[in-house]
Design a protein around this nucleic acid. Structure first.
Lengths: 344, 344
DNA sequence: CTGAAAGCGCTTACAG
DNA sequence: CTGAAAGCGCTTACAG
């Protein structure tokens, strides 16, 4: 069981140079001659040496690790998001320390575990943190950015899509197509995404003096959306158009309407979802959906975070991206859509 | 911009004790009096101190980090797997350094990036590694375990479900229910999961002297399964039962059959998938599927890895778990199923 | 360009 | 139980 730990000193001895030289060989931009570098690499590959990133992190006070906190990986929107984050950070030479939170739990108890590993920066997804914790990160010099969440007055950048405006647009689309009675299937109540989507939708309905919106909660899950749709149609007043706070609930609602309730989509009821997850495009659904510009949002998040790591003076940013409408077959829409869209 | 770095020396000074005492206060089982410990924690919380895990890792030669390599997070089977791994490792006090590989690329180039961070162990999912790389890990004393992949003669443990036996069982189910012409929609060709499922399926069909199996490739994607199903029915000989190497292809195949081909499931064609992903249970599909015991597989993986971290003498293991059949509505089945199953 | 030396922030024998 | 000291494996001024 000879666990060999080969260090820069071993390589130095083998190569006949100093330990500093070995270190310089692995530091791009360090002043070292080609000849020395070659000797070092030859010795290193002979011994199977690789620098120890932990030791490097300690002395250089840079771990090159980014912490990502993610709740809700089961929600199909987030695997695609995580995939993009991973690719972006890997491309830029960062490692990712991943933490899973329960959905929308307060993550104040979790963060110290990340912070003790001296992550250079922190991406927080689908969770919120207290302003005390954010201040603590600021004091440590660890920049934090919230992805797809907005918390006012907190020492963190944030990147969101314009959920309020998206909600307003859906209301306009439904009403302009002649729908009379709109309904909203809510996600998790205390999330900013759910609140903003609902607020935009309902307030626009009020402005246009349409029938008050019906409402049920679907907890951002398929089963929740399925049950919420059934409840909506047990009432006296039935909707002819439903805006679902995310796609997975919309798919559940579609199955409930077509299966148990024998309703046709979009002839009897129009449905619009949010996220444009992969299954929204499946032939069995062809769900019309609001597509957040995930690529742009991830890029903005990574860029802002890395900029702030490299220059702590850069001020916080609260970035808001506009959404697209993806037109498929689940909703009757007006002639003139009035917002950016693609047809699939 | 006063980035304060508070160290154990600062806390020691504040508490009026030695730096060793501060360290001991944070080491469970260390010999330290309650009084000293209290003084240390009081000073620490006053100063906002938290031990530096990077420094601890360096001196203790234990990073407490596990590396997870995952390809294919877009495949809905894997987010559920990642979620379980994260919960298990977090519960047991380990951090996770995540790496994303392209699907089934050789990850030899990727591993050094993980190894330089001195991970205590390595879980590799849906990728393979060369035996050279595995030997390298052994030499470094870093245990490796393959999840859902098996590579013969490689210095790593592995945890799989019995894909060969599962394939045989599906053949038996189809034939015993009276199907005449079976077909297989393949996943990614060079993966052990695909090869084993196909081998079990085809070899059992041969043993029972049924019609030779038809075959198309679906690349483990929805769209791939959709197109593969269309191709199957463009031929002279048409199947009356299809085994899909994973669920997501099965859902694509179902949409192709019911949509473009106007066939009824299971009246005209039976379909069985593999993985039992969440959407297999959706009302729009109700796919009959083979369910690997993911919870047991993850537990076995975590247990074997942690055991080997704590005791390097423990031999490698190649664990094989048996699958269940989840009976829904997409396949005509015989009276007597002959394997463990649940009805949903 | 090169080497000797200090130091990152801890853990852990060692001696008391 | 407690403290002084060595050392984990590097980076980076400093002097030459």
């Amino acid at each position: 069981m000879a666990r060999e730990r080969i260090t820069s000193f071993d390589v130095a001895r083998e190569a006949g140079v100093s330990q500093s030289a070995v270190s310089r060989a692995y530091t791009s931009g360090a002043s070292i001659s080609k000849a020395t570098k070659d000797k070092v690499f030859a010795a290193a590959s002979k011994l199977g040496y690789q620098p120890n990133a932990i030791a490097r992190s300690l002395i250089s006070r840079r771990s090159n690790m980014i912490g990502i906190v993610m709740a809700d990986i089961i929600n199909p929107f987030y695997p695609a998001v995580l995939d993009m984050f991973m690719r972006r950070f890997q491309e830029r030479g960062h490692r990712v320390l991943l933490f899973m939170a329960s959905r929308d739990q307060n993550i104040d108890d979790l963060l110290p575990q990340l912070l003790e590993y001296q992550v250079d920066g922190l991406v927080i997804t689908s969770s919120t943190l207290s302003s005390e914790m954010a201040d603590h990160c600021t004091k440590l010099g660890t920049p934090v950015i919230l992805f797809n969440r907005y918390v006012p007055n907190v020492e963190a950048s944030s990147v969101c899509c314009d959920n309020i405006d998206a909600g307003r647009s859906v209301a306009d689309l439904f009403l302009s197509a002649g729908h009379q009675q709109l309904a909203y299937i809510a996600g998790i109540e205390n999330t900013s995404t759910n609140q903003d989507r609902e607020h935009g939708f309902s307030s626009r309905i009020k402005e246009r003096r349409a029938q008050p919106v019906l409402r049920e909660t679907g907890h951002y899950t398929y089963e929740g959306g399925y049950q919420a749709a059934l409840r909506l149609f047990q009432q006296q007043i039935r909707p002819d158009a439903i805006f679902c706070a995310n796609d997975i609930m919309a798919l559940g609602a579609m199955d409930a309407l077509r299966g148990e309730l024998k309703l046709r989509i979009p002839d009897d009821v129009s449905i619009i979802g949010f996220d444009d997850i992969a299954s929204a495009a499946w032939q069995g659904y062809r769900l019309t959906s609001i597509r957040p510009p995930v690529g742009r949002m991830v890029d903005a998040t990574v860029n802002n975070l890395i900029e702030r790591i490299e220059n702590p003076e850069i001020p916080l940013a609260a970035l808001l991206e506009t959404v697209d409408l993806v037109v498929r077959d689940s909703a009757r829409l007006p002639e003139h859509l009035g917002l950016r869209h693609t047809r699939e």
